[in-house]
Amino acid sequence: MAITGLILIGFLLMHMYGNLKMFLGAESFDHYAEWLKGDILYPLIPKGWFIWLFRAFMVAAIVLHIYSAVTLWSRAVAANPTAYAAKKKLAQTYSARTMRWGGVILAGLLIFHLAQFTVKAALVNGPASASSYDMVIGEFSVWWMVLVYALWIVTVCMHVRHGLWSAFATLGANTSAKARAVLNGCAWAIALLLYIGFMIMPVAVLFGWIRS
């Protein structure tokens, strides 16, 4: 759970970095998109293989992450046969409480996101254009699409907020009350960074700061 979670957070940071290339213009972004599908690690592996290996790796991480989550969830359900008539929370955060259903919602939207930008089967604003740059601009010119993403990234960042702290605790980094505060601080910082980093580009597109 912890290791796959950290891999996924690492991916998010990379993805965010890639998205920010939108601000450098069409050429830069399209080059980046092509590069991903191109000759990374060539000639160690044949051209074009990297993206598929990378996708396989990400799918494996996600599957393992979900598998661990389902195992934990089912153990918790089995260990809680009767619910309390009254239950009050003292310590748990909203993020911690919503890890499971939040994770399901998040995963559902992830499928849509892939269908939209990777498979290009669910584009809401016209047919797929040749340029990835144009495609992104097209999609985020729709105001409600930006809103959908704004909400989705909230769920992602909440998941990251508890997930990052929890992953480090599981790996043994919570050595004292102070360490706990530091880890939670880092989790907040990374969650906020991701939110800003991911949302700044769609918002910029919507308001026309980035144009084709």
Partner: peptide
């Protein structure tokens, strides 16, 4: 049949002897 820990922290909050949460780490 006990469940797995997801680092929520309710346990340490109710502990009458204040067993530190970091013992789990």
């Amino acid at each position: 049949g006990f469940g797995g820990c997801t680092n929520i922290g309710e346990c340490a909050e109710v502990c009458p002897k204040q067993i530190p949460f970091d013992t789990i780490s």
